[in-house]
Design a binder for these strands. Structure first.
Length: 274
DNA sequence: AATACCGACAACCGCAATCCT
DNA sequence: GAGGATTGCGGTTGTCGGTAT
């Protein structure tokens, strides 16, 4: 393994990017496209290593990135996918095309993980040990969320006038593998989880369904659609706001028979499909 | 008002995978 | 096929702003 030489060079700047640096980077990528990162600092004069330039572009400057304000539906998806895939943030992010893996990872670490821990603790206090085991093994589906995540940083991709590409096409257009293979990744992840194995094959990206379609099928969200879920969220919000100490609707849902059926259905669908 | 503490998020680091010559 | 270069990924750390003391 050879590290990019520029990372060790004296004079390489670290820390937060300035708007001026962003503008330079954006301008260069507009002209040359998001590739050959090694040449970026050389040709732009940026005192950043190639890796830093790539990360800055990928996570913040790239067009079509949505930042902050995770919706309840997005939270649901993240939680489901994290349960299915583990900490495979890139794979998870590929199902939320407007979100970056870094953003999702941060959101998970700072919000969702704590939230789940809190709910589990609460559930534990209400349930017998055998009950909680069952619940903990189930997919910890949708959580009430009044997201406090708010970024003060504006998406500088607004600077990219007339260069926006449809989100759905951006992965392929940019030639990155992250989004292109997601269907296969999830499919194989599922297989790996069911059997034994490890490495997935990026070359086998040839699935009929779009990643979103596969996910919808996988999670059977049509039976638990956005409207009902959102309504539940609203109720949950009210419940929590009005009675902080009481059992939230989320917890109720977790313990509910209907939810139990849905969890079973989810697993069955998953097994059937893969 | 000053300081300590904490949470959120941006950025970095190291490794692995993939690409290219 | 080998080896170097490039890119992707996940874990971790650093920084900054808000809040508590």
């Amino acid at each position: 393994m050879v590290r990019p030489p520029c990372c060790d060079e004296v004079g390489i700047k670290k820390g937060p990017w300035t708007p001026e640096e962003d503008a330079v980077l954006i301008s260069y990528i507009q002209e040359h496209g998001p590739r050959n990162w090694r040449s970026v600092p050389i040709h732009t004069g940026l005192m950043r290593c190639s890796k830093s330039c790539r990360l800055r572009w990928t996570n913040y400057l790239r067009p079509g990135i949505k930042r902050g304000n995770f919706t309840p539906h997005e939270e649901k998806m993240i939680i489901h996918l994290q349960t299915l895939l583990g900490n495979r943030w890139a794979a998870i992010a590929s199902y939320l095309p407007q979100r970056t893996d870094n953003d999702i990872k941060n959101y998970w670490n700072t919000h969702l993980k704590k939230k789940i821990m809190k709910y589990r603790t609460t559930i534990d206090s209400y349930m017998t040990p055998s009950d909680t085991t069952t619940i903990h093994q189930a997919v910890p589906s949708f959580l009430h969320a009044s997201s406090t995540y708010a970024s003060s940083t504006e998406n500088i991709s607004r600077l990219l006038k007339d260069w926006m590409t449809p989100v759905a096409d951006s992965n392929g257009a940019n030639g990155t593998s992250a989004g292109a293979c997601t269907g296969t990744i999830l499919k194989q992840e599922a297989q790996e989880n069911m059997t034994v194995g490890n490495n997935y094959d990026h070359s086998a990206c040839n699935v009929a369904l779009s990643p979103q379609e596969q996910l919808d099928s996988l999670l059977s969200f049509e039976d638990w659609d956005n409207s009902s879920a959102d309504a539940a969220f609203d109720e949950s919000n009210q419940s929590i706001e009005s009675n902080e100490g009481s059992l939230s609707l989320f917890e109720t849902w977790l313990l509910d028979e209907t939810a139990e059926k849905m969890q079973g259905r989810l697993i069955e669908d998953w097994q059937q499909q893969y």
